[in-house]
Simulated scan of single mutants.
Amino acid sequence: MTITGIITALIVGLIIGALGRLVVPGRQNIPLWLTLVIGVAAALLGTVVARALGFADTAGWDWRELATQVVLAAVGVALVTGFAGRRSVSRY
């Protein structure tokens, strides 16, 4: 993978993560870097799912693949927010 591919994957991951974060209702107390990680993972997993279902290789912009990626990012953000909310922070 070239440096351009890595930078593109990070930008797409950030966008997918932000869209997933917007879909989840309420406030999410997770940092930007974690949103990026969730977005990149959701983008990769969404592409794998789209290829497995046979709708990843279409002409033009593939809205079904994008929707799959955003849904996976939303699930990831919701799970991470749920786990982060369960931690008890001691404040003295």
Score class of each variant (00 low, 15 high):
Thr2Pro: 06
Thr2Asn: 02
Thr2Lys: 07
Ile3Ala: 15
Ile6Ala: 10
Ile7Ala: 14
Ala9Phe: 03
Ala9Trp: 02
Ile11Trp: 09
Val12Pro: 04
Gly13Met: 04
Ile16Gln: 04
Ile16Val: 15
Ile16Thr: 13
Ile16Ser: 13
Ala18Trp: 10
Ala18Thr: 02
Leu19Asn: 09
Gly20Cys: 08
Arg21Phe: 11
Arg21Ser: 15
Leu22Phe: 13
Pro25Glu: 13
Gly26Ile: 08
Arg27Tyr: 11
Gln28Gly: 12
Gln28Met: 07
Asn29Thr: 07
Asn29Ser: 09
Ile30Phe: 08
Leu32Thr: 11
Trp33Lys: 05
Leu36Ser: 14
Val37Ser: 15
Ile38Val: 15
Gly39Glu: 07
Val40Gln: 10
Ala42Ser: 14
Ala43Phe: 08
Ala43Arg: 03
Val48Gln: 13
Ala50Phe: 01
Arg51Leu: 10
Gly54Ser: 12
Ala56Cys: 05
Ala56Met: 05
Thr58Trp: 03
Thr58Gln: 06
Ala59Leu: 00
Gly60Val: 08
Trp61Ala: 08
Glu65Trp: 06
Ala67Asn: 02
Ala67Tyr: 00
Thr68Asn: 03
Val71Asn: 03
Val71Glu: 07
Leu72Thr: 11
Ala74Gly: 14
Ala74His: 04
Ala74Val: 13
Val75Ser: 07
Gly76Thr: 13
Val77Gln: 05
Ala78Phe: 15
Leu79Asn: 11
Phe83Ile: 01
Phe83His: 08
Phe83Met: 13
Arg87Val: 12
Ser88Arg: 15
Val89Cys: 08
Arg91Ile: 10
Tyr92Ile: 11
